[in-house]
Write a protein that binds this DNA or RNA. Sequence first.
DNA 1: GTGAAAGCGCTAACAC
DNA 2: GTGTTAGCGCTTTCAC
Lengths: 340, 340
Amino acid sequence: MPSKVDPQPQGKVTSLEVAALAGVSRSAVSRVFTPGASVSEKTAEKVRRAAETLGYRPNVLARSLLTGRSRMIGLVVAYLDNHFYPGALEKLSNALQAQGYHVLIFMTGQSDRDLDSVAEEILDYQVDGLILASVAMTSGLAARCRAMGVPVVLFNRRQKEAGELAVVSDNYGGGRMVAKHLAAIGCTRIGHIAGWEGASTQRDREAGFLDGLRAAGLSLHAREVGDFRPETAQEAARAMFGGADRPDGVFVANDFMAFMVMDVLRHELGLRIPDDVAVASFDDVPTASWPTYDLTSVRQNADAMVAATAQILIGSIEDQPVAVLEPVQVELVLRGSTRR
Amino acid sequence: MPSKVDPQPQGKVTSLEVAALAGVSRSAVSRVFTPGASVSEKTAEKVRRAAETLGYRPNVLARSLLTGRSRMIGLVVAYLDNHFYPGALEKLSNALQAQGYHVLIFMTGQSDRDLDSVAEEILDYQVDGLILASVAMTSGLAARCRAMGVPVVLFNRRQKEAGELAVVSDNYGGGRMVAKHLAAIGCTRIGHIAGWEGASTQRDREAGFLDGLRAAGLSLHAREVGDFRPETAQEAARAMFGGADRPDGVFVANDFMAFMVMDVLRHELGLRIPDDVAVASFDDVPTASWPTYDLTSVRQNADAMVAATAQILIGSIEDQPVAVLEPVQVELVLRGSTRR
DNA sequence: GTGAAAGCGCTAACAC
DNA sequence: GTGTTAGCGCTTTCAC
């Protein structure tokens, strides 16, 4: 007792079956699903109808074998706990989806071994391009992918070696703004809690910050390293503010650490923000604007960074000329943590 | 002037070239890269060496055309701002990677139209399985994928219709625990700020909570809807606590809303937590344990949820029997927000 | 504009 | 254990 034809049938449907139903050749079907191919509107209509009833859609993987393009972008990311990255990932995925690409995720530890094995996996999947975010780039991952003809873009990291495409904010400028602002509100003993010193973002932010202090006739009063991790930042805050002669202002290298620093200042040490200590930071993730933190922070323009990343990557995939990259502009968002 | 042979050459290398260099057939090469195929150690060694020098790795996409398995798992997710999801995504990706699968991300809005077009894209990529997280399941996405033979697992959501595999916490039990605890510390006027009412998590948490209140001889004193969004939760908190006869305890349906509620309570309304109002919530994301919030919350065991998800999904992909799912156990983590 | 034929890189019977 | 053959589902010359 055969059942009626199902409008959305089980299993896979091939272009050949569609061709048969539409009474045309496999090539005709292919053309209908290839933008810019030459088909008469009449056949196109027949094919579309047949495809519809059969529930046919072209197999992207089979297509990629022919075209050499998988329409997948690899995204390598080490952690997602700093809220800046999930936000960026969301935007990135949306931007790429809008252009017909999709994101294949590779999580990685920071060890060389990890990165090398990840490199192999990435290449196995024939991704058209690669985005490296929040990754320590000690290994040759980028170089290896580049050598295999896969364009690579670094997100929120610069690389020492030339030749790597990288999208970064104006970290130097942002650091400078913070120094200027802290000086302007009357801080004189200014500290810095650094992130991971291997990161270009850290180096750039600190360089700008120090130059900014200098320009204001000040010098760094205290410095600790927080490695971009809240636990380490907690220790750093205790060390910096536990003794006498504590700073009256501090630049924490990112929001994620700054929240923890503020908690230590207020809840462990009983200091008032901004009265006893002014706190400023970098990223301006959503939490920074919550009433509890109300944190002055340098806003990274994630939308612009993502747009630049997508444009550059897709540009190099599709062999379009890629303009030289300027750092993305930042903006100091003033809030209660530095209001005096 | 030809350059020396590059140990890691440009461009793609095929199995045929490896076969030639190793002096064997293409099949032999294939077998070496297929776990459990029968090859002599001698040939295997020759092939491995040839592959090494040529920088060869099998093309996963080409393989998938033959095997019908892409070793990709689609992950559909609507937003990443609730910190529970990035954490889960990270763990999920790691767990699947460990089993040789990789995650292809699909971001989606909540509209039906979005979900339908996403369904097509997912199927186009021939994913072996699908995970649906933080998605309103009004559309036939799951059904459509299931019909095409793609196993689907719902993460942190149940579906009304039977037949959908779903991994959830014991939301009912967690809600009950909260009620019991609030009653135990002496709250008598207890409110609830609900999440999005279309979500099974919300319904289950609230059902458990109400039953728990009843068991303690109490009834709900106030109720507002926060839709799982901080802005809406902010309004809800104002409505609930702005007037007279305010609650002395409140269960907020997840941490993400609870942080905002606490901010309103303390900074807008000048209430003390827990003295004036005890606050408890659900998820136990990392921020809940920060000193500022120190929030009593029902801990979702993300590791267990992820492990279950991976196991079930891979099980149904590889046609192994899948055991019936029990909700994942939860645990009430007591902190300062309810300490009296 | 349309169909026939070739082949992307690989695996899986099937003989040997 | 190993090579030969066929083909996964699709796009793309190439004739017509």
